[in-house]
């Protein structure tokens, strides 16, 4: 409230100043936007700066983490708004990446799944607080989703509480598996990370465990608030 009026005041002042001494202020950049960012800088120049800024990465790490693959290149170039043809291409590219568990079971063990979903370690590299690559990774779904009644979650993704209401049909299991393994095979340019496979956090079996967490009627995701809270 106090803040808002202050901001408003600052904005008016800035407007007034830019009216009377527009030239002097012209050098200062206006409000930042993705469109301006893409207009004023190009990928190759940026990647040169990246090369010298990440000197400790191995070639493999550089390739899988720093360089954009086809999908991210398209998302970045279109500011997450691919046209229909680009979207279809992303979906094709991503669907081809998905691998299913060896036994073919798309829903595994929800208790394991809860461990992976709550876990926050995995994939950090560097000189401090790096993750042990020999331990199984977690996926920190709770960063973005509320999932278990009473357990805190973020709001960048939709609530997944009661997800099991959709049932456990093969179609639902496959949809859920695909969304966790490779969200961009269903929603091109979604902010949700792609979790499955080489260069990503989870194995196929872990993804199946998370599918069970979401769909199994016994899982805490699908318990009423009261039971879960006690």
């Amino acid at each position: 409230m106090k803040i808002k009026s202050k901001t408003l005041h600052a904005r008016n002042t800035a407007l007034f100043l830019s009216l009377i001494c527009g030239a002097a202020h012209a050098a200062q950049p206006g409000p930042a936007s993705w469109a301006d960012a893409n207009k004023n800088m190009d990928y190759d120049t940026f990647m040169q700066a990246a090369k010298s800024s990440f000197p400790y990465a191995t070639p493999d790490e550089y390739k899988s983490r720093v360089e954009n693959d086809f999908t991210l290149k398209t998302c970045n170039a279109t500011m997450d708004q691919p046209n229909a043809a680009q979207a279809a291409e992303i979906i094709k590219f991503e669907q081809a990446r998905i691998q299913y568990p060896k036994e073919g079971k798309l829903a595994g063990d929800w208790q394991q799944g809860e461990k992976w979903a709550k876990g926050t370690t995995g994939g950090r590299i560097g000189f401090a607080d790096a993750d042990n690559p020999n331990l199984p990774s977690g996926s920190n779904c709770f960063a973005c989703h509320v999932m278990i009644p009473g357990f805190p979650g973020g709001n960048m993704g939709p609530s997944l509480i009661g997800y099991g209401k959709r049932g456990q049909s093969p179609a639902i299991l496959k949809y859920t598996y695909d969304h966790v393994y490779d969200s961009k095979s269903l929603v091109p340019c979604t902010i949700m990370p792609r979790y499955g496979g080489q260069g990503h956090l989870l194995t196929a079996e872990q993804v199946a465990d998370i599918v069970a967490l979401l769909t199994d009627p016994q899982s805490p995701v699908n318990q009423p608030e009261k039971t879960a809270a006690q």
């Binding site: 960012a37 893409n38 004023n40 940026f46 983490r65």
Partner: peptide
């Protein structure tokens, strides 16, 4: 500004 909006990383 480019980095702020650039999607990358695992």
């Amino acid at each position: 500004e480019y980095m702020f909006f650039h999607r990358w990383g695992e």
